[in-house]
């Protein structure tokens, strides 16, 4: 059902945990399935995301999507990070089963929320 990549990110999630002194936090909940994702960003004076971490309440696809998303944004500028799509996440994971595509959307929404909060500061 899941690709090896998904299972790897589920078993060994990258950048998991909360972040002290984060510059921005974004949290979204899926109305559809009840999953919740929270992401923390550390951003330097040049708008580069230097550190990122997440916490997720959800299935393997949700955990893997969050984990891959943190890998994709690390080192990117805010502008670049905003261009990450659900397809980037699902492609990096080698694809997600159809009913689980919304998990990758949740990851991009959490990121957008964090960036929005950063920009509002």
């Amino acid at each position: 059902m899941y690709t090896e990549k998904v299972m790897d990110h589920f078993q060994n999630p990258r950048n998991v945990g909360e972040m002290k002194n984060a510059d921005a936090v974004g949290e979204v909940g899926s109305i559809a399935c009840g999953d919740i994702m929270r992401i923390y960003l550390k951003v330097d004076e040049n708008d580069i995301i230097t550190d990122v971490s997440f916490k997720t309440f959800g299935c393997a696809a949700a955990v893997a999507s969050s984990s891959v998303m943190t890998e994709l944004v690390k080192g990117k500028s805010i502008d670049e990070a905003m261009r990450i799509t659900k397809k980037d996440i699902s492609d990096t994971l080698g694809g997600l089963p159809a009913p689980k595509v919304h998990c990758s959307i949740l990851a991009t929404e959490a990121l957008e929320e964090a960036i929005k909060n950063y920009q509002a500061k």
């Binding site: 998991v16 919740i36 994702m37 916490k55 997720t56 955990v63």
Partner: peptide, 8 residues
């Protein structure tokens, strides 16, 4: 649970 935003 260590991974869960709710527990935290």
């Amino acid at each position: 649970r260590a991974m869960s935003p709710l527990y935290n």
